[in-house]
């Protein structure tokens, strides 16, 4: 079954078959990343533009490496060094990039829906690398790949997603993907950062989604504990008293992790705030697959570029 779409804008409109196709394809690309020559000629002559209006090291580097390992030419544009600072609108920027005939545009923007708007006006395939608090599809895909690799499946697993769910596009994309593939998602964190009602917006698929009373309840018997980053740049203030207090009540430490299943794995989309949402001994501990996530990120993005870019 092929991927019949121009763009990857979110997990919400992907079918289970499409998700599995991307994950299966990513597995073969993971092998390429272990070869001596980590490059295949598949997308030779294609151009991928990374258009980042928000700070990023992991995602941007990951997309750039993915494009280069497929022999595509990758061009990086960050808002701070682009004509955006001269007042160019998003649409004008997109139209100008389109005039240079790229095959794919990877975009990160602080406004939800920005990639969707660009997808409508450009011929290139558009890949959402994070839009506001909406979606971050390749992050959810790499999380799923990491979980599937560690656990052999997603169906039936209890996945606790802990922290700033309100501002988190990672949590939203993951909630869509995990429930579609039959996992049971439990959300917890400070009540001020819980978008209650979210569970009604996400179809439960073969799994389920709910908010827990508190973090301990969410983590108890979990197969996967996914910690979210406290997004300092999006805190307009007043959501929680202090970072110290956050760490005590909502952070992942050894005691809390012991509530989860003995073979539970710990994920975090990065960058981690050590000592705030996650303690160093957990982040660097045996249960942590945080660096596996980064490794799988390159493979997932290669799979997405391969499946989307090129074929007319």
């Amino acid at each position: 079954m092929p991927l019949h779409r121009k763009d990857l804008l979110g997990i919400a409109d992907l079918s289970v078959e499409e998700i599995n196709l991307i994950l299966d394809t990513a597995v073969t690309f993971r092998d390429i990343n272990t070869r001596q020559i980590k490059k295949v000629p598949t997308l030779r002559g294609k151009t991928v533009i990374n258009l980042f209006f928000e700070a990023s090291t992991r995602t941007r580097t990951s997309f750039e490496i993915a494009a280069k390992r497929l022999s595509a030419d990758a061009v990086n544009i960050s808002a701070s060094t682009s004509s955006v600072v001269k007042g160019e609108t998003l649409v004008d920027t997109a139209l100008n990039l389109q005039a240079m005939a790229p095959d794919a545009i990877v975009i990160r923007h602080s406004s939800s829906g920005a990639p969707h708007q660009i997808a409508k006006i450009v011929k290139a395939g558009v890949i959402n690398a994070g839009d506001g608090a909406h979606e971050h599809p390749t992050q959810a895909l790499l999380d799923a790949l990491t979980i599937r690799h560690a656990k052999g499946r997603l169906a039936g697993l209890k996945v606790a997603i802990i922290g700033d769910v309100l501002h988190s596009r990672v949590a939203r994309s993951n909630a869509h993907l995990l429930t579609k593939l039959g996992a049971h998602v439990v959300l917890a964190g400070p009540r001020t950062l819980m978008p209650f009602g979210l569970e009604k917006l996400i179809p439960p698929g073969n799994g389920s989604i709910r908010f827990a009373e508190n973090v301990d309840e969410a983590i108890t018997d979990a197969d996967v504990v996914m910690m979210l980053r406290i997004q300092m740049e999006r805190q307009s203030g007043g959501f929680f008293p202090s970072l110290r207090e956050y760490s005590i009540h909502f952070g992942l430490n050894k005691r809390r992790l012991a509530l989860a299943k003995p073979d539970a794995i710990v994920l975090h989309p990065g960058p981690i705030n050590r000592g705030v949402e996650i303690d160093s001994d957990v982040a660097d501990g045996a249960s942590s697959l945080i660096l596996d996530q980064v490794e799988n990120g390159v493979a997932v993005r290669m799979a997405v570029l391969y499946l989307l870019a090129g074929g007319e």
Binding site: T28, P41, G311
Partner: peptide, 16 residues
């Protein structure tokens, strides 16, 4: 598959 010379002309990406 990844070394084919006709990937840009086939509509559906082959399974690898």
């Amino acid at each position: 598959t990844l070394y084919r010379d006709d990937l840009t002309t086939v509509a559906d990406r082959p399974v690898i």
